[in-house]
Design a protein around this nucleic acid. Structure first.
Length: 547
RNA sequence: GCCCCCGUAGCUCAGGGGAUAGAGCGUCGCCCUCCGGAGGCGAAAGCGCAGGUUCGAAUCCUGCCGGGGGCACCA
């Protein structure tokens, strides 16, 4: 019996009991569930349904709990039901009912953990979207890891996800980038406000290699722009791909200007009265969505402001059929939330079709000193740097496993000193150990069995219940847009497995005869390995056969 | 001044109202006669402060204190 099935049973029994007693069934909360108590004395699962329902139903919590316990006690698969504390109902499952979860995992295989509650949603997930003026730094790397994992998690729960990268290749930042390239090519110092990293000189060199006459070309800047920006794009794409993060759509802001989409979007907003004219500029009422001031869309010099591109871009996304647009932005962009929502509202959409996830910074420490991440200074810690230090798996995992709400401090000395310092190896080790076990089992002719009722050891029960949690963990991670929950769950699962492995012998000892218990335990191991692999897959982290 | 995020063990971080608050690393002490010791068992150690809501608050609300990040007709 899975937790979901048990919750269904509790709900059904509660409904029966209330009905039989002539009480209001609507007093039941909509999300009747079971949870795993921390204290094993409190059973395999517990439910607080009696406490949550009692007041509305007009009965004492413990009295209602008594009725529920009586009704639950005799049900198939329930070994015991008892009241505790203020009205908790603590449940124990029969070993065979609980063990059936193992069979479900084996049957579901790679699809265990997936669901379809997001099936109706077509989601545009935009993340990273770094300006093509320099290599991806640590902050971008965090979004690359988290965004990619979120995309996988959303897809696992049924959403149709398009991962998208928006290149801001139309504004003044690009002009400065180009000017920096030209200066480098001419051997001149970095211009005021330009970019001075070593990569600038490298790209300038490549431009000259591709177009030897670039410096004397009448359209010199245009040549450097065309080739230089393209080289930067390629570099960013290469780094992301090497990081295991690929996008479905690489969107160029410039295309919106070139195609007239920006003008069209602005015109439409003027027509519908969603822009107002003041002080020579056209303004969007972003204050309606909580902004502290309205924002100009057309500047008083007649040129479109940056936000004009955002408006056209939003319209483009909607035209492509997305019913939810998720933007992952850094903490320094939190002011954009109101603007982006206002954009949706201005086009007549529900602002909730725009969901902005704000992630905090990553700080890197080495020798106790914080490393600055300034691209301009050229001392940035890049995605490649981090990967070079710790590898893709550890980099992704360490960035994903924390909530994006918290500033993340990574210590390079710790991460690069010993691999064991990173929890990813704890999880991967569990998988590798299971893979090894499977090889050994095959060598002695042991095959998985189905006598799950024999799995009565406390650590077997704990492992089975942990495996049973996985689908709900993925569902919650998708719903809350928090892929770090998957990582933390995997650490719990790995711990449950290691404890089981320490306490329960799987393979026959010496010339011991193979028994149904051996076969059932092997099946449990196969299931555990499947869940570890599925979970690591959601994070884009490898599940190694050997380490 | 206004807005956003954070404050939980020595450190890095989990804990979407529930019973005795967890993990990794670090410290101390155990377990190698067989499946991978990159493991297991045990110990010390913590919810910034004050109110409020609730049967019940690390979790929700308010205020304060502390830290970080934002508040452009730049992109």
């Amino acid at each position: 019996m899975t937790p979901a099935q048990l919750a269904d049973l509790v709900r059904a029994v509660a409904t029966e009991v209330l009905t039989a007693r002539g009480l209001d069934v609507s007093a039941l909360p909509g999300d009747v569930g079971v949870e795993r108590p921390r204290n094993p004395d409190h059973g395999d699962y517990s439910t607080n349904v009696a406490m949550r329902t009692a007041k509305k139903a007009g009965v004492a919590p413990r009295e209602l709990a008594t009725w529920l316990v009586d009704a639950l006690g005799g049900r198939d698969g329930i070994a015991s039901a008892e009241i505790a504390g203020p009205g908790f109902i603590n449940l124990r499952l029969a070993a065979d009912a609980q063990g059936a979860v193992v069979g479900e995992v084996l049957a579901a295989g790679e699809s265990y953990g997936t669901g379809d509650e997001l099936g109706a949603r077509s989601i545009n997930l935009e993340f990273v979207s770094a300006n093509p003026t320099g290599p991806l730094h640590l902050g971008h790397t965090r979004w690359a890891a988290v965004g990619d994992a979120l995309g996988r998690v959303l897809a696992a729960r049924g959403a149709k996800v398009t991962r998208e990268y928006y290149f801001n290749d139309a504004g003044g930042q690009i002009d400065r980038f180009v000017a920096s390239l030209v200066a480098a090519a001419e051997g001149k110092p970095t211009p005021e406000g330009g970019y001075g990293g070593a990569y600038i000189a490298e790209i300038a060199e490549q431009v000259l290699a591709a177009e030897p006459g670039a410096l004397t070309d009448p359209d010199r800047d245009e040549v450097f722009r065309r080739i230089g920006v393209e080289l930067m794009f390629d570099e960013i794409k290469r780094a992301l791909h090497a990081f295991g993060t690929d996008f479905d759509v690489w969107f160029h802001e410039r295309s919106l200007h070139d195609s007239g989409a920006v003008d069209a979007a602005v015109a439409r907003l003027k027509d519908t009265g969603n822009l107002y004219f003041s002080d020579g500029a056209w303004w969007l009422r972003s204050t309606d969505e909580g902004d502290d001031k309205d924002r100009p869309v057309i500047k008083s010099d007649g040129k479109p402001a940056y936000i004009a591109g955002d408006l056209a871009y939003y319209l483009d996304k909607r035209a492509r059929g997305f019913d939810l647009c998720i933007y992952m932005l850094g903490a320094d962009h939190h002011g954009y939330i109101a603007r982006l929502r206002a954009a949706a509202a201005a086009f007549g959409d529900d602002p909730d079709t725009v969901e902005v996830l704000i992630g905090q910074l990553v700080r890197l420490f080495k020798d106790g000193q914080m490393l600055k991440m300034s691209k301009r200074a050229g001392t940035a810690v890049s995605m490649d740097d981090l990967v070079g230090f710790v590898g893709v798996d550890a980099a992704r995992y360490s960035l994903i496993r924390s909530s994006i709400d918290s500033v993340l401090d990574l210590d390079l000395d710790v991460l690069s000193r010993r691999s064991n310092d990173n929890p990813v190896f704890y999880v991967q080790y569990a998988h590798a150990r299971l893979a090894s076990l499977a090889r050994n089992a095959a060598d002695v002719g042991l095959a998985p069995g189905t006598a799950f009722g024999l799995l009565e050891h406390p650590r077997e029960g704990d492992l089975i219940r942990t495996i049973g949690e996985f689908p709900a963990v993925v569902r919650t991670a998708a719903e809350l847009r928090e892929p770090h929950r998957v990582a933390r769950y995997l650490e719990t699962l790995a711990a449950a497995y290691h404890k089981f492995y320490d306490g329960c012998r799987v393979l026959p000892m010496g010339d011991e005869e193979i028994s149904d218990l051996h076969r059932a335990r092997l099946a449990l191991c196969v299931a555990a390995r499947q869940v570890l692999a599925n979970g690591l897959g959601l994070l884009g982290v490898s599940a190694p056969e050997r380490m």
